[in-house]
Nucleic acid binder design. Structure first.
Lengths: 247, 247
DNA sequence: CAGTGGTCTAGACCACGTG
DNA sequence: ACGTGGTCTAGACCACTGG
């Protein structure tokens, strides 16, 4: 049995570890109901609030859920969910030695992207273009679209963003959510020229949309074209951290 | 001010929503310290445990963290983390109308993959090969490697897994974690023939490793080769669910 | 109806960080 | 020494589910 025994003498942790252990070992299977709270209080000799703290942690970690009036149950495990980080140029598979702001334009009509942005009153969009180089060779190009708001001082900052991508993602990051689409496309002609690709060569196209959490309005759309050799993803099933979220 | 006011009369939720609101609006900035618990107890007229329940929720959702002896602080937001689902053949960009088990072998020597698997006493690995078809055309091929354990009944199940990929991912999903690597490679010759690709054509290679959470031992390695038109990823910054994890 | 989980309180003791 | 957050208790009332 060689119980690895918790290195904590924190009551609720011993309960968490015991239950987690039983789930890991399959003693409790997905769908099974745990004992009732009053039974577990006796079994572990803890108060109700302490026991519930343990159950709460197990719930947050995706092991159990509860149904009022019935009991606590073991979850169906989430096994197909993966996480990865994408930090714009930091995510490329090479050392970027130069990032160059290559174009700043304000477009006002006929742009399909404008609809996405739900353009403001003016309907004008700022379009920035940036390129990343590795050993003098272009490896990626990025086009960023966001609504042009006249007289907004933030724009000025954004226009100097060559090395400060974050500047584009407004003041309060908590209020934003982002979507990423990763696909392989045949390089568009103008992009191919700039990246020095053969015509029709496949390149990664990563589209990033930034939205407001509350209204869902799109704040910006970015299109990254990346030479196919310079991008890959490593993703992992989420781990519980067991740290900092302690209380 | 038009407070959208919570549709709950749950005390701890009103606290959560007020604090979250202040963070969203930037009244509290990342790094800022919140008021002390005793101050907030008075401010919201709640007991300590109720207040701490609110703080716990905000902590789980990534808004705040705490430092014993000092106070509660607003987090630096996590903005570059994305999630997506990868469910083997269900993740392809087309309707798979047929999955065919094309080969079952037991290899025992000189295989580079064996090291990865940390082969058991026998050092033998089972190698399965499966292909997915869309409108009669092959679109993906998968090679799965896992240790051969003589007399283990599970093997028998696995060998019939043509349409049951999950069978490969052992009895207790809670005890497993997975890694995914997504890259673009030139199609290897044998794979190219089977997928009917031109030589040297780029294809997606997705490598999936399944490990035990406790020992980190690799349980299986899968290699998916997917024709480049048939794969893409859509990923999102994690959302708080605000449901089921209620207690 | 009795049993379950969900919310909430008032109090206690501790370990930690700052002066 | 004092204030902070971290742990824990005993008890209360409620809404829900089931027989």
């Amino acid at each position: 049995m060689h119980e690895v025994k918790a290195m904590t003498n924190i009551l609720y942790m011993t309960v968490v570890e015991d239950l987690k252990d039983k789930i890991m070992k399959g003693i409790y299977q997905p769908g099974d109901m745990l004992k009732s709270e009053s039974e577990m209080m006796k079994e572990y000799s803890v108060s109700r609030m302490t026991l519930r703290k343990s159950l709460s942690l197990l719930s947050n970690a995706g092991y159990i859920y509860s149904v009022p009036g019935k009991g606590h149950f073991v979850c169906e495990p989430e096994t197909d969910l993966y996480q990865f980080r994408f930090q714009d140029y930091d995510s490329l598979a090479c050392e970027i030695d130069k990032i160059k702001l290559t174009s700043v334009k304000i477009e006002d009509t006929g742009d399909k992207v404008r609809d996405l942005l739900g353009g403001g009153v003016t309907g004008k969009n700022v379009v920035l273009e940036r390129m990343a180089f590795c050993a003098k060779n272009p490896v990626a190009i990025e086009m960023v679209y966001f609504p042009y708001v006249p007289h907004e001082p933030v724009i000025e900052e954004k226009l100097h963003f060559a090395n400060y991508p974050k500047a584009l993602e407004t003041r309060n990051l908590f209020a934003l959510k982002k979507e990423l689409s990763v696909q392989l496309v045949d390089v568009p002609e103008e992009v191919g020229e700039k990246l020095q690709c053969n015509q029709g060569e496949p390149v990664f196209l990563i589209t990033k949309k930034v939205r407001k959490k509350d209204t869902n309005a799109i704040i910006s759309v970015s299109k990254f074209y990346i030479k196919k050799e310079y991008f890959s993803i490593k993703a992992f099933t989420p781990e519980e951290d067991d740290s900092k979220k302690i209380f």
